[in-house]
Nucleic acid binder design. Structure first.
Length: 828
DNA sequence: AGCACGCCGACT
DNA sequence: GTCGGCGTGCTC
């Protein structure tokens, strides 16, 4: 380098800033610095984590106006955490979803890697304050944390940060420091996740162990032989010390001696925590493919070999063997020395697919999902980053997996709502999969038995290539579906029933035959709500104004949105009556009632309440597989991905539960749900049967689900979308306002909508819908309003949205938080 | 986010 | 008059 000026770095800081910042670093410190490493950078009087995006030799023009370019404080990584070619993807995501880029990167990376500066209070040994005296005084009452300080002699970083935030607390601390009573230690909050290492042993001369043995003690001989045997079996790699000691207790001492004699040496090696927990079941490769599978593979594989971006929609009925197509495509991709990313909608779901991939590709598979501990997540991430794992299976956030060169991205069950993140960065992982593939010249396979209307629309219009598998493996017929009208099923006092006579009779028959049944309900908890039988009011959450759900296990009423909990032994909050009871139904109530109706049946329940632990979930599924369960009862969770050969009956308790939701996709969702549950019935040699209970037997979604008629459902839905110009005929942005003052929020919502209306008149292409109170009008103590922007494409909407927000900011936005949801899926 | 700066009410 | 509350704007 001719000039010795500093190197400038473009850094995305992990705070809500919508642009990147420029820092400097001395040339000698920049040696080997690559984009993708974390940096510690000064920002407004503190230190925060930043991600290095780019290096440049001279000051970029956009930073010319900056008063002082600060030098980075530290380089936190020796190796990058993500490949450089992901950076354009991060930039795109930040732009498209209108989210700060540093936050985008932070959420893409494994949790626990963000460092920032903090403070800790330590009481001095000398010159102690008269604490006991102070505690009894006014000061003591004002600062309850003084008690902790007296007992422990220090405060944790978290506690200190709380004290520091209040001016009074800060002032007190500063004063005490001047008195010499305490020290305020400025330190970095340690990153919570680190690589785990273990000590491994390797022999210095592996091939001639016997030569040395004569001069060694028996224990040393034995240890050396054991080491050489294991080492050869492991392909010459070093062996964990603990494994040797486990195999031969005398190895501990012998190893020390052997090291002194220079016959072995120790090394520290990074180990990966095993995320699989229980090993997934083994699946053999099928001998042959069906004609339709063959056809799909023949179209996908050449596309993968071409190494150009292309998207396939694989529409295959349940049980048609889509997984085998994924596996063949994955094998082809690996042959090209490229890697594979497989997205699945939920953690629980991964097991089945994971089993197939592990059976076929062994330890080249890495798993990424929220069920992993922070350490496991980090380990998997690093296995992917180093290229040790070339196949990644993961939930939503795995779309950011640090694969250098993905050649294939599979999105299984692409219609699933779980691909949309509904908090913070509101991204659609399926859409991002396609975007990432387009940037990295990869092939995408979107797989589903019930594709989203939008994806299918793109497929028949040539944007994607449509692959259809209409027949199930071995020509197994689809289950017969019957619909039961719940309106005609009431018990003696006119109350609705949970189990119609038809469903009960079928359950009984199945029990007699020794076959398994599945009962599906789209609800959680014991009951929907508590109803006062005197005044007719329900018990609602005081924060969210929605009905509380009764959990009999805990004897508690629970708000499923904010977690507010109340004892279930309540009086009516409106009229103080004690004549109050549960109404509606959830899985717990179903379980209880079913237990009474069919006392001889072995019943198991799976829903999010029982599924917090993945281990428990796997154990229940195993019980079902081993036929130690007659009836499996559950929510969404049980609707997909599993394969139970003896499950021949599926009952859907209340099929139209979702039809009333304020959502233009409600019809599509209901159909998908029914079709997915029905697909669980009769997947092996036994024929399957489905019974749908509903209050709307004539609704087209229910009727078309009965006849497994996806094409017709699509036609009906696309027709109505066209009429009202909803996606895919337009794009949407939902703007949410929330704040503690209901009037301020409502006024701003109206003000912004009026403003948007005025802007519309100049730009005819955008429509404004609303404002309306959000369906959850009050959540976590905050009032919420929203309005929709509808336009021909996202670019137009972005531009419109930016103008609207900047105009609104000029007028003033006070005490209201505005968040933007691009391509909203749920209007909650 | 979280820090500095700046503007208003309640105290010495 | 100052102290301390919180609201606004900027961070390289």
């Amino acid at each position: 380098l001719t000039n010795a000026g500093p190197i400038y770095l473009e850094v995305a800081v992990a705070v809500p800033l919508d642009h990147t910042l420029i820092y400097s670093i001395a040339v000698d410190k920049a040696v080997g610095l690559t984009p993708g490493v974390r940096l510690l950078v000064p920002l407004a009087g503190r230190f925060v984590t930043g991600y290095l995006l780019a290096l440049c030799g001279e000051l970029p023009p956009e930073a010319a106006s900056v008063r002082t370019i600060k030098p980075v404080a530290d380089v936190l990584d020796a190796f990058p955490l993500f490949p450089e070619n992901l950076i354009p993807v991060f930039r795109w995501v930040a732009q498209y979803y209108q989210h700060p880029i540093g936050e985008v990167i932070r959420m893409a990376l494994p949790a626990g890697l963000t460092v920032k500066s903090g403070r800790r209070i330590i009481l001095s040994k000398a010159g102690r304050p008269p604490l006991a005296e102070i505690l009894a005084s006014e000061t003591g009452k004002a600062f309850p944390w003084l008690q902790v300080l007296l007992e422990k002699n220090m405060l944790t970083a978290a506690a200190t940060s709380r004290v520091w935030r209040s001016q009074k607390g800060r002032r007190l601390l500063e004063q005490w420091r001047q008195n010499g009573w305490l020290t305020i230690k400025e330190e970095l909050s340690a990153a919570t996740v680190k690589a785990r290492t273990e000590i491994c042993v390797a022999a210095s001369h592996l091939d001639c162990v016997d030569e040395f043995c004569d001069e060694l003690k028996p224990s040393e001989q034995k240890t050396l032989r054991l080491l050489s045997r294991l080492s050869i079996a492991g392909g010459g790699s070093s062996i964990p010390r603990k494994d040797l000691i486990k195999a031969y207790a005398g190895a501990r001492k012998a190893l020390k001696n052997l090291e002194k004699k220079r016959l072995i040496f120790f090394e520290e090696r990074q180990v990966y925590r095993d995320p699989f927990g229980e090993r997934p079941p083994f699946f053999a490769q099928p001998e042959r493919l069906t004609a339709e599978q063959e056809d799909a593979v023949k179209q996908v594989n050449p596309a993968i070999s071409r190494k150009k971006f292309s998207t396939f929609l694989l529409h295959g009925v349940t049980g048609s063997g889509k997984t085998e197509v994924y596996l063949r495509a994955a094998a082809t991709t690996l042959e090209q020395s490229r890697s594979v990313l497989v997205l699945v909608p939920e953690i629980a779901l991964a097991t089945q697919l994971e089993g197939h991939f592990v059976s076929r590709f062994g330890d080249r598979v890495a798993l990424l999902h929220s069920g992993l501990s922070a350490g496991e997540h980090y380990d998997q991430w690093m296995r992917i980053m180093t290229g040790e794992a070339s196949i990644v299976i993961g939930a939503r956030s795995a779309v950011f997996a640090p694969l250098r060169d993905p050649g294939l991205i599979v999105v299984d069950e692409e219609h699933e709502g779980a691909y949309k993140q509904e908090e913070g960065l509101r991204y659609q992982a399926r859409d991002l999969a396609i975007l990432r593939a387009s940037r990295q010249n990869a092939t995408v396979i979107l797989g589903s038995a019930t594709p989203s209307v939008t994806s299918y629309f793109h497929a028949i219009n040539g944007k994607y290539q449509l692959l259809t598998i209409g027949r199930r493996i071995n020509e197994r017929p689809l289950p017969t579906v019957s619909v039961v009208d719940l309106r005609k099923n009431k018990n003696a006092d006119g109350a609705p029933v949970l189990f119609s006579n038809e469903l009960l009779a079928a359950l009984n028959e199945n029990l007699d035959r020794g076959e398994q049944s599945l009962i599906f309900l789209n609800r959680r908890g014991y009951a929907d709500f508590m109803l006062c039988r005197d005044c007719g009011q329900t018990v609602q959450c005081r924060n969210c104004q929605i009905s509380l759900t009764l959990h009999k296990d805990r004897g508690a009423l629970l708000c499923h949105y904010c977690g507010y909990t109340l004892s279930s032994a309540v009086l009516c909050p409106h009229c103080r009556s004690s004549n109050i009871g549960a109404i509606g139904f959830g899985t717990e109530r179903l379980e209880a009632e079913l237990g009474e109706l069919l006392p001889q049946a072995r019943i198991a329940r799976l829903d999010r309440d029982t599924c917090v632990k993945r281990k428990h979930y796997l154990a229940v599924l195993n019980k079902v597989r081993q036929r130690r369960v007659d009836i499996l009862l559950g929510t969404q969770m049980i609707t997909k991905g599993h394969h139970f050969p003896h499950m021949t009956l599926v009952g859907i308790v209340w099929a139209d539960a979702g039809l009333g939701l304020p959502d233009f996709r409600a019809g599509e969702r209901t159909f998908q749900l029914i079709a997915q549950v029905a697909g669980r019935a009769g997947r092996e040699t036994l024929p399957g049967r489905v019974i749908i209970q509903t209050y709307h037997p004539d609704h087209y979604c229910i009727d078309l689900a009965r006849t497994h008629d996806y094409k017709n459902l699509f036609e009906k839905e696309i027709q109505s979308r066209r009429e009202v110009a909803f996606p895919p005929f337009s794009r949407l942005i939902n703007i949410r306002l929330e704040g503690e003052d209901p009037d301020k929020v409502r006024n701003l919502a109206h003000g912004m909508t009026t403003l948007a209306g005025k802007l519309c008149r100049t730009r005819r292409t955008v429509d404004v819908l609303g404002p309306a109170p959000a369906p959850l009008a009050k959540l976590r103590g905050r009032y919420r309003w929203q309005f929709l922007l509808k336009g021909p494409d996202v670019e137009t909407l972005h531009a419109f949205c930016n103008r609207l927000l900047s105009k609104a900011r000029q007028t003033g936005i006070k005490a209201v938080r505005i968040s933007v949801d691009v391509d909203p899926e749920h209007m909650m």
